[in-house]
Design a protein around this nucleic acid. Structure first.
Length: 447
RNA sequence: GCGGAUGUAGCUCAGUUGGUUAGAGCGCUGGUUUGUGGCACCGGAGGCCGUGGGUUCGAACCCCAUCAUUCGCCCCA
């Protein structure tokens, strides 16, 4: 029989304890920030009826990029490729009894059948954070502000990222009234704007001409040039500037300024491909030259909850991903040293094993995590094991210690060793734990 | 779905006018007289060179196919 491969399934990763430490650190940092704004955890099923996604995202996307199958009851289901439809369904189902505005978050796992590449995998994790039932620019400012707070909680500084902001209604108005495009042309132009930074200026111009058609091309290009030159709202052509939407955008920027956010800018070319956005759209970009890409984005989507036959409920949300966050932390050198969840690696010496087991129990009763090495190997081997596991403290228990009830506690970080009583060791461990780099949360369990 | 790059030890890689038992560093493991790691020294294990064909007296090396990884395009909920 052929040997089985040890490689994980395409587009997925194995999470060894070492990798889990970084993931846990990212999750708990997300959690800490959103909880501080009053967001509460929720969760949804891993599987949804396929049509939930089809209704929202279009048939092609669903066919090509979901893990879909027919269950034994002949139902078409899909592994969730995103959470927005699920949470919209949940809100719609109980909208009468949910306290609005509802601030909800989830950290979850998703799958999309895609070609893996840098920062994109088939199996991925992301934070979903939404506020339902709140109109106007305040919830938008809150969500964008939280995005910035999250990056700062990882140690990012303002110059490491920028926030681009645009508004869907402004885009529509621009396409229809300023550029004077019909529906089909507008769709094409939105796509073109969306990839403007990815293609050569000549290619952009040629494709724009194609959309305008021969007659309107010259005038159209001139108008686009004027749009692209706009750095603030004031630079926009009058037709657009006078619209009601502009006031909303300006209001949002005012709130952001008050919140101390300095790196937000208006960008008329920011599109966010999705159809369901109805107002503000935004996207966070990494400024690092080696990772010059979108980190995450979001916006207002007021129509989705209404798809489930309920009254429309306004919604603003965003979704940072794990992989992108990892890349961001790596290129900016923001990954902290992360140790084990184990507090003490206990080494039994001589005939001390039986006693060590008892002592370990005493520590555990105090909430200290103790791993007992019962192998009876030489001391240096046991020490090496402790180091390899990245446990910060090692403790020796032999007959002498059991008699005196004073144990040598070695701290690998400082290289020091002290003889301490059980109580003193417990308090030393508690002090040590207060450090933020310690991995103290497991997996995705959300409490 | 399309294009480029790369597959040699656990990891990072060396290894050409195709020639006998395939190498290094790190890691792993045993020891330097068993109550203290990181250093040093001495030993050891571990590879049918991604896989399958072909060319050749002879292939890690050349050719074809295939799979995988990776970067990009499309797409990105």
């Amino acid at each position: 029989m052929a040997r089985l491969s040890t490689e994980p399934y395409k587009g997925t990763r194995d999470w060894y304890p070492n990798e889990m430490r970084l993931r846990s650190y990212i999750f708990r940092t997300w959690r800490k920030v959103v909880k501080s704004y009053g967001y509460e955890a929720y969760d949804a099923p891993l599987l949804e009826p396929l049509e939930v996604y089809a209704a929202k995202s279009g048939q092609e996307l669903v066919n090509d990029q979901t893990y879909a199958f027919t269950d034994r009851g002949d139902r078409q289901v899909a592994i969730r490729p995103e959470l927005t439809p699920s949470v919209s369904r949940m809100i719609a189902a109980k909208q009468q009894e949910i306290a609005m505005p509802a601030r909800w978050y989830n950290i979850g796992q998703f799958m999309r059948y895609e070609r893996p590449q840098r920062g994109r995998e088939r199996e991925f994790w992301q934070l979903n954070c939404d506020i339902f039932g709140a109109e106007g620019a305040l919830p938008e400012a809150e969500i964008i502000g939280m995005g910035a707070e999250i990056l700062k909680a990882f140690g990012a500084r303002d110059e490491m990222f920028t926030i681009k902001i645009n508004n869907r209604r402004l885009i529509n108005s621009m396409m229809a009234h300023y550029l004077e495009l019909d529906g089909v042309q507008a769709q094409l132009m939105i796509k073109l704007f969306d990839k403007k930074n990815k293609i050569a200026p000549e290619a952009f111009r040629d494709q724009a001409i194609e959309i305008f058609g021969q007659d309107g091309a010259a005038k159209g290009l001139q108008k686009i040039a004027q749009l692209l030159a706009a750095r603030t709202m004031a630079d926009l052509p009058e037709v657009i500037r006078d619209s009601e939407v502009v006031k909303e955008v300006q209001e949002l920027f005012t709130y952001l300024e008050r919140a101390g956010i300095k790196n937000a800018m208006f960008d008329i070319t920011l599109m966010r491909g999705l159809d369901y956005y109805t107002g503000t759209v935004f996207e966070f970009f990494d400024t690092h030259p080696e990772n010059n890409r979108s980190l995450f984005g979001g916006g207002r989507y007021d129509g989705l909850v209404g798809l489930f036959g309920a009254e429309p409920v306004s919604a603003v949300g965003f979704a940072p991903g794990l992989s992108m966050t990892e890349l961001f932390l790596q290129v900016h050198d923001l990954v902290p040293k992360l140790g084990s969840t184990t507090d003490i690696y206990m080494i039994a010496i001589g005939d001390g094993l039986r006693g060590a087991m008892k002592v370990a129990e005493q520590f555990r009763a105090e909430g200290v995590n103790v791993e007992l090495d019962f192998t009876g190997r030489k001391i240096d081997k046991q020490l090496k094991t402790a180091i390899k596991k990245q446990v910060d403290h090692v403790m020796f228990v032999g007959e002498e210690e059991l008699k005196s009830e004073v144990y040598p506690l070695k701290n690998f970080e400082t290289g020091t060793e002290q003889k301490l009583s059980l109580e003193r060791i417990v308090s030393a461990i508690r002090d040590h734990r207060a450090k933020p780099t310690r991995d103290d949360e497991e997996f995705t369990v959300d409490v």
